[in-house]
Design a protein around this nucleic acid. Structure first.
Length: 557
DNA sequence: GCCGTTTTCGGCCCGACTGTTTTCAGTCG
C-alpha cells in the first residue's frame, strides 16, 4: 500500500512543479511532514479522529489520507500524474534543487527523469540555464550519486514492519515461519527481510508467491523441510557467519559438528545427532548461555554456563525518556498529551526539550516562551497524580563556536539541556571536532543530541573525530544521546560501545515529535543491546531521584 | 489547502545560506 506521507509529498511536489497553487502545495508538503513526525501511528490516529485535530490537517488532507488508508484512488494525485511525466516525481529526492528548478529542467531542457538530469549534468547543459550555474550542476550531480549509494536498504522500522506483515500473512495460511537474518539481529539497515519457512519445496514456493505481491519490502524465503532441524536452521540463517563459526568450532572441540545436518556431539560412542527443540537447546548442549540475536556478531565472545553473563539492556529498564518536543516548538502534541503517552508507556519521567531560539524554522523558543513553558511544567507537576513527571529543558542549537543558544542564567533554570547541531554540518572536520568538544565540556550541557547528525539512507555522518569528542564528554561529565528515531540511530552501535568504554553514559531518546513516537525507544534499545550496553550504561535507566541527583551533581559555574 | 477570525478572506514558520545575481530567488532546516 502506498504510504500516506509519500502521497502527500508527491501531491505537494506536483503542485509546486506546475507552479499553479504554491500555497496548496505547501499545505500538502506540510501535511507530509506532520505524518512523518507521527511515525507509524497514522492509521490509528486517523480512525481515532485524532488526526483531524492536528493543526495543519484539515478537511481536504483528511479526505486524501482516508483514501490512501482505504486503498481508494486519490483524485488530486491522479490528475497530477496525468499532467506530469512519472519520472519527474522521483526527481524530488534530489537534494539542492526544488520544484522551481526542476520545473525549469523539464520545460527548458525536456528532462523528465533522474537519469536524464544526471546525463545532462555530465554534458554540461545545466550551467547555461537561468538561475543555474556550475555550482548547482555540481551539487545536483553529487546528490544523484549519493542517492544511488544510499537507496539500497531498509531501515529498522521498515524492516520490522515488513517482517510483521509477512509473518502474519504466512500464519494466516497455516505456514510456520521464523524471522532470521539481519532483521532479527536488529541491524540498523537490512537488505531484505529473511524468513525461514518449515516445509518442503512446494510450501516454500507457495510462501514465496504469497509474499511476492505483499508490500514494498523485499522478502527472501528459505526453507527447512525437517521439523527436527528447524531450530538449528533458524540459528544458522540468523547468523552472523562469524558467530556460527565460533559455535561450530565449539562443537568441533567436543568431537562433533554444527551445520545444516544438525548439531552432532560425541558423548563417548561417536558423534550423534542432538535433538534441539529451540535455539536455546543448541547453546545449552554446547555448554553455553544463549547469545541474544543482537549479540551474534563476530568478536562477541561466547559465554559458558557457569560464567556470569553481561546483563543486556531491556526496554523495561528504561525509567524515562529525555529529549521530546511538543506543540510549543515543532511537535504535534501538547504537554498534556505527551505526558499521558509517557505515563501509558510506563515511563516515570519525560524530558521536554523544545528547539532553541536560533532554530526559527522549527518554532524555536525565545527566552520568554521558554520560561513560560518552565512555569507551566511546574504547575503540571504540582497537580500530576499518577502521571509521569515532566522535566524542563531545551534542545539547544550548538552555535558555530560550540556555544549554547541562551545566556547562562537561562540555562541554569533548566533541568536537562540537550545540545544538538542543526546547521553547518559540513564544516571542516577539525573545526567540527573543536565545536563538539567545546559543547561537551560546557558545564550546562547534560546530553549531546544526535552527535553525528546522520540520517540513515539520507545524509552521511558529519566527518569529525568522534573519539576525541567522547573523551571530551568523559571530561565534561555529560552524556551522549542514542537518538532512537529509526532514521537517525545516532550515535551508532560502534560509537555507543566506545562511550561505554569511557564511562560516558548514553541517553536513549525518542526525540519524539508526537505521542506515538515515544515508541522509537524500542529501536534505541535494539541498538544499545547490539552495542553491549546494560542498564548501568544508560542515563535514562536511572530512577527519577537518581537522575535528578546526577543532573544536580554536575559542575555548574 | 489550512486557519482564524478582526468569521467567508487573506494571510501562510522565518532566517541563513548559496549561487546566482547586481539586488535576489530558491532551498533548507
Amino acid at each position: 500500500m502506498a504510504e500516506v506521507k509519500d502521497v502527500l509529498d508527491k501531491i505537494g511536489f506536483g503542485y509546486g512543479l506546475l507552479g499553479e497553487h504554491p500555497m496548496r502545495a505547501r499545505a500538502y508538503t506540510n501535511g507530509a511532514r506532520i505524518i512523518k513526525k507521527l511515525g507509524k501511528g497514522v492509521r490509528a490516529a486517523y480512525y481515532d479522529g485524532e488526526l483531524g485535530k492536528i493543526r495543519g490537517i484539515g478537511k481536504g488532507l483528511l479526505g486524501t489520507i482516508g483514501a490512501v488508508l482505504e486503498g481508494r484512488p486519490v483524485p488530486q494525485l491522479a490528475e497530477l500524474e496525468e499532467r506530469i511525466p512519472a519520472g519527474l516525481f522521483e526527481t524530488r529526492r534530489i537534494r539542492g534543487i526544488g520544484p522551481s528548478k526542476i520545473r525549469a529542467l523539464w520545460h527548458e531542457l525536456g528532462l523528465t527523469t533522474v537519469a536524464e538530469i544526471e546525463y545532462a549534468c555530465n554534458e554540461n547543459r545545466l550551467v547555461d540555464l537561468k538561475g543555474f550555474g556550475p555550482k548547482t550542476q555540481e551539487t545536483v550531480l553529487a546528490s544523484i550519486a549519493a542517492m544511488r549509494e544510499g537507496r539500497e536498504g531498509l531501515r529498522q522500522d521498515q524492516a520490522q514492519e515488513g517482517a510483521r506483515a509477512a509473518l502474519q500473512r504466512l500464519e494466516a495460511e497455516g505456514i510456520r515461519a521464523a524471522l532470521v537474518g539481519d532483521v532479527r539481529r536488529g541491524t540498523e539497515i537490512a537488505t531484505s527481510v529473511d524468513l525461514l519457512v518449515l516445509g518442503d519445496e512446494a510450501v516454500q514456493d507457495r510462501a514465496g508467491k504469497l509474499l511476492a505481491g505483499e508490500g514494498t519490502v523485499p522478502v527472501t524465503v528459505t526453507g527447512c523441510a525437517d521439523p527436527s532441524l528447524f531450530a538449528v536452521h533458524t540459528l544458522l540463517a540468523t547468523g552472523t557467519s562469524g558467530h556460527i563459526e565460533a559455535l561450530a568450532a565449539r562443537a568441533g572441540e567436543r568431537g562433533g559438528s554444527l551445520d545444516a545436518e544438525g548439531l552432532f556431539l560425541d558423548s563417548g560412542m561417536g558423534p550423534h545427532l542432538v535433538d534441539c527443540e529451540d535455539e536455546d537447546a543448541v547453546y545449552a548442549a554446547l555448554g553455553l548461555h544463549p547469545t541474544p540475536p543482537a549479540r551474534r556478531e563476530p568478536g562477541v565472545p561466547l559465554v559458558g554456563v557457569g560464567v556470569a553473563r553481561p546483563r543486556l539492556l531491556r526496554r523495561e529498564d528504561l525509567r524515562g525518556a529525555l529529549h521530546n518536543h511538543t506543540t510549543d516548538s515543532d511537535g504535534i502534541h501538547g504537554l498534556e498529551e505527551m505526558r499521558a503517552a509517557a505515563t501509558a508507556a510506563g515511563l516515570e519521567y519525560l524530558g521536554i526539550s523544545e528547539h532553541s531560539r536560533t532554530a526559527a524554522y522549527a518554532g524555536g523558543l525565545p527566552v520568554d516562551r521558554l520560561l513560560d513553558q518552565v512555569q507551566r511544567i511546574a504547575a503540571m507537576n504540582d497537580a500530576r497524580g499518577d502521571d509521569a513527571v515532566l522535566l524542563t529543558g531545551v534542545e539547544s542549537d550548538i552555535l558555530r563556536d560550540g556555544g549554547l543558544d541562551y545566556p547562562d542564567e537561562i540555562l541554569a533554570a533548566l533541568q536537562v539541556v540537550v545540545a544538538s547541531v542543526h546547521t553547518r554540518y559540513s564544516a571542516d572536520p577539525d573545526a567540527m571536532t573543536a565545536r563538539m568538544c567545546a559543547v561537551a565540556r560546557n558545564p550546562f550541557t547534560a546530553v549531546v543530541g544526535h552527535p553525528t547528525g546522520r540520517l540513515l539512507l539520507g545524509r552521511p555522518a558529519s566527518p569529525y573525530d568522534v573519539e576525541a569528542f567522547l573523551d571530551a564528554c568523559a571530561e565534561g561529565g555529560c552524556a551522549v544521546e542514542l537518538n532512537a528515531n529509526p532514521q537517525r540511530l545516532d550515535l551508532d552501535e560502534v560509537h555507543c560501545a566506545m562511550a561505554k568504554e569511557r564511562g560516558v553514559l548514553v541517553s536513549i531518546s525518542p526525540d519524539a515529535h508526537s505521542a506515538q513516537a515515544l515508541s522509537h525507544l524500542d529501536h534505541g534499545v535494539v541498538i544499545a543491546r547490539r552495542a553491549g550496553l546494560g542498564p548501568d550504561d544508560v542515563l535514562n535507566c536511572m530512577p527519577l531521584g537518581q537522575l535528578e541527583a546526577w543532573l544536580d551533581g554536575r559542575p555548574r559555574p
